[in-house]
Computed example of a mutant assay.
Amino acid sequence: MSDTVQLSAIVPADCAGQRLDQVLAQLFPDFSRSRLQAWIKAGEVEVDGRTLRPRDKVYGGETVVVAGELETNDAVKAQPLALDLVYEDEAILVLHKPAGLIVHPGAGNPDGTVQNALLHHAPELAVVPRAGIVHRLDKDTSGLMVVAKTLAAHKSLVEQLSARTVRRDYLALINGTLTAGGRVEGAIGRHPRDRKRMAVLSHGGRPAITHYRLVERFRAHTLVRASLETGRTHQIRVHMAYIGHSLVGDPVYGGRLLLPKGASELLRETLRGFRRQALHATRLGLVHPETGEPMEWEVQPPRDLQDLLAVMRSECPADTVEP
């Protein structure tokens, strides 16, 4: 199914000589340029009764009429699944995703995802791309996600992510001890031999930058706060493994289990039982798409990670670095 959007406007005189797709982006800022270009190519935009190409020039004074089709998310069914909502208004919502919950349906996981739950919670999301999801978290990563509830909010958030102005901070428990924070820069792409993994590549890949600073040091592990300058698949997991400090519990990039010398049986069992990457999206900051107000949220790690840290603190005196 799809919904039809009806729009009309007069091309301003000062737009003379500009491309049609550029002018539409100015006239209808709630819609992305790629969506407007798709409508032009589909013949759903008329300029004085004529269909043009995206690159065709306008002269000013023409009447533009758009009858665009908005694709709905009918392939993804709404399901009454629990969502831990941290914030919600008419334009956006922020949720705390638990570890173990998949964001989008995919092969082998047709339902039971964040997207299914969102479509039940807010049916109007059916006409927003991917039900308003503009960034994702891995299945076994917990933490904050923002969702756009309108097309205008979606466009704004995508632009903020592209401009790297959205703040995304993570807590990560890594193997090994660090003495200082740092920066990892390395292009990330598909592993050349294992297509299910990502890797830092010397040729190809997409630019990726991760910043990290120390929070607590333990006997054989370090808790760091990592922030993303880019948002590549598995970025923090790949970058930390690349510098020799993979995440505790990471089943893909983690390598051999690291046990501190003299660790108690409780700590050994707790580490062995932690079977997901110790990664939590703890802080999210952005500019509200409608009000322009800077907003920020922070949530504490889930119980399993808190319990692991508590055991470490009880027998591996922590060197607290960050206040």
Rank of each mutant, 00 (worst) to 15 (best):
L101Y: 12
L101H: 14
I102K: 08
H104Q: 13
H104L: 12
P105C: 05
A107K: 13
G108K: 14
G108M: 15
N109E: 11
P110A: 10
P110C: 06
P110R: 04
D111N: 15
Q115C: 12
N116H: 10
L118P: 06
H120L: 05
H120M: 05
E124V: 09
L125I: 02
L125A: 07
A131K: 01
A131L: 11
G132C: 03
G132L: 03
G132H: 07
I133G: 02
H135Y: 09
R136D: 00
L137H: 10
K139S: 02
D140M: 05
S142H: 08
S142G: 14
G143R: 02
M145N: 02
V146G: 07
V147E: 06
A148T: 05
T150E: 14
T150V: 09
E159C: 01
E159L: 08
L161S: 00
S162L: 15
R167D: 08
D169Y: 06
D169E: 12
Y170A: 01
Y170F: 08
L171N: 08
L173Q: 06
G176L: 14
T177A: 05
T177C: 15
L178R: 08
G186N: 06
G189Y: 07
R190Y: 04
H191V: 07
R193S: 15
R193K: 13
D194F: 15
V200P: 09
H203K: 15
G205N: 07
P207E: 14
P207A: 13
P207H: 08
A208S: 14
T210A: 03
R213P: 03
R213W: 07
R217N: 15
R217W: 12
A220Q: 10
H221V: 07
T222Q: 12
L223N: 10
V224N: 09
R225D: 04
R225T: 01
A226S: 05
S227G: 13
E229Q: 07
T230D: 01
G231A: 02
H234I: 00
Q235C: 06
Q235M: 04
Q235H: 03
R237H: 04
R237F: 07
